[in-house]
Structures are given as C-alpha cells and as structure tokens.
Design a protein around this nucleic acid. Sequence first.
DNA 1: AACCCGGGGGC
DNA 2: GCCCCAGGGTT
Length: 388
Amino acid sequence: MLQPKTRLQIQTLLLSWFDENQRPLPWREKYRPYEIWISEIMLQQTQVKTMLPYFRRWMERFPDVQSIADAREDEVLKHWEGLGYYSRAVNIRRTAEIIVRHHGGTFPKAHSTILGMPGIGPYTAGAISSIAFNEDRPLVDGNVERILARLFNLDTPVEEKNTRKFIWNTAEELIPAGRARQFNQALMDLGATVCLPRRPACEKCPLNGLCESRRMGTADRRPVTNRRKDIASIEVAVGILHHRGRVLIQKRPASGLMPNLWEFPGGKIHPGESPEQALIREFREELELEVRCRERLASIRHNYTSFRVLLHAFLCRPADSRPRPVLRSAVEARWVVVEELDQYAFPAANRKLIDLVSGRKPAAARNHRPEPRNDDAEDGANVVLLKK
DNA sequence: AACCCGGGGGC
DNA sequence: GCCCCAGGGTT
C-alpha cells in the first residue's frame, strides 16, 4: 500500500523531529516499564498537563508494583480523586495483584500477556510494548488517527471498521525496525504539539511536504468523525446529616457511575417533587432514616461529560435521637467528623460542596495539585450561597 | 456497533 | 458551549 520511499521519508523526518522536539516527561528519563504502564493508564482520555501532578504524587506513594498490591483500594482511589474514569484505578490495582502473583512483581514483557491485563487494550498494550520494551509494535490513539487521517486525507469516519483497520495497518507498516520507542512517541508528540485537533500548525510540521490533506486544503476537516449525542440535565438533592458532631457519608456501588466513591446521601428529584421531599424520600429508600431538612446550604452546578447536574444541598437533622442507618441501596455508611472528609474520595460536585461548607476556596482542597488554579472566581460563580 | 465512564484544556 | 484528550469494558 505504502511506497517504500514514502515510508522511509516519513520515518526519517519524524525521528529527527523527535530528537529535537520531544517533550521532557518524567517517565522518559528511565523508561521503567512500571512508570510507562502507570503513565499510559493515566493518559487514557486525559491530557499530559492534567495528569502530570497525579503522576508525580503517585510515584511518591506507589514507587513500584508491590506497593500498589499492598495498598487498600480506598487509598488507591484517593490518589485518583479528580482524574475521572475511576475504573482505571481499580484496574491498576487488579493488574498489580496479577503481576505480583504470577510474574514475580516485575512487569511482563510478552505482548499477549500485557494485552490481557485489566484496563489494557490494544492501544495501551502497543504503547507498553513499544515504549517500555522497544518492541516493533504499532499503537493507535487519537493522535495517530488524526495524523494519518490528515496525511492520507481519509474522508471516511474513523469510527468505521475499515478506516480503523487501515490506520492500524499503516501504523504498523510505518515502524522503523528497532526504533518503535522513538517513532511511536514521535507520533504522540507531533499530535499533541503540532498536528492539533483544531488549527494545526502545519508550517511547523516535518511532514507538511507529504501531507495530502494539506495539499487539498482539508486538514482542518480531518479526521472525519461521527456526531455525538446530546447531553442530559438532572437535578438532585443531597443532605449533610449532622448528629453529635459528625456527618453521614455513604459509599457508591462498585459498578456504574463513579464506582466506589463516597458521597452525601441523596438522589434525583422526581417530577413534581420539591428538593426537600426528594431528600426525605431518598434517606428513607437508601438508609431507612427519617430526617428533617433544615437550611439549604447551597445550590451547585457541575458539568460532567455526559450530563449536567444541579445539586441542592441541605443541612439535615435526624428525627430519631439514635439514628441507625440501614444499608439498602448504599454499600456502606459512616459517621465522620468534618476534618476526616479529606481522606475520602468524592465526585467533583460533592467535593465542591465540602470545600464550600468547610469555608475553603474550591481549589484548596485538591491537595494533590501543587498550584492553585486561577479560576476560583469561575468556580465560585457556580456556587450560589443562599444562606450563610 | 453503540454505550458508558469524567475531569479538564482551550477556544 | 463545544470539541477533544496517549481508551477500555460492556452489551
């Protein structure tokens, strides 16, 4: 399919571009398989800039595979809090246990073994094989899709099977023997810094003389992709149930949305229901607790990827003098003092609420972010303080 | 093949 | 707002 001459040109141009332009990243210092693995999982659907602080913090706490296998799942999740796609953290732990048990604690080298691990699919297996072990294996992610769709001016949606197949085959053909580590990372860096999703910097691209979509003027319309479906809005009520200096939190199920994270009890407001009525109903359904709503603490807006939520938070008191939560839909419930809340992993909207009621700035509680973000004002605008 | 999972960046 | 990001798992 690909002309040998063209292939050699692409290889040569990309490798020398990478030599001069690669980004300095922590896992590129030693190419330890363990670090490559963790970085690749963290980078799934997550930008380098976002995951970098998490990666550094992770390596301090979990320097090797064994340390993960020895840790409690809650602590692993706590280090993942805020990164999203929480099943990634659970899968890391499962994989760590497999590696300790069956591979003597060191990361296995065989591609077929790597591919079978929890949370490791075709892309990540290719990435670990090529980047950690420098084996001649292809990898295809959003960057490679975009670069090849532009280079060859592909006009069929990349979601289609045949298009995917062409891209994987081409990615494999292009690998220069013995240099997959450099070549595949060159594709990543080119996609992240030059061949951008919008407004690609073609004038800086080492492949611009070979790029078919640039020649045709279609670069900004590649890759062709299917439309996404629109997102829903929901309204929920949550209760901070106070009793004898403690508040009640509960753990979410291990499957579904935001698995294993902790949250304040509550739930969706049904049509025709007031937030207070919904809250009283949810406490009954989930915990068999009778509560009274006191003041409304705040209404918080948060945009998740696939839905928006408007969360009404209330301060509640138990109707009973000795409240005993009974686990129904909740997995676990605990009475904790406010200072302990930071030890638990919460969904983002709950975390906003905690920051608010503990009188902190929104960014401050994200203790794993070394530098506070500069968008406090914007976060604050999402929080309506109805009563002090 | 179509969904589901999430937070953030950047325009 | 909207699209995208070093995707994988489930149905």
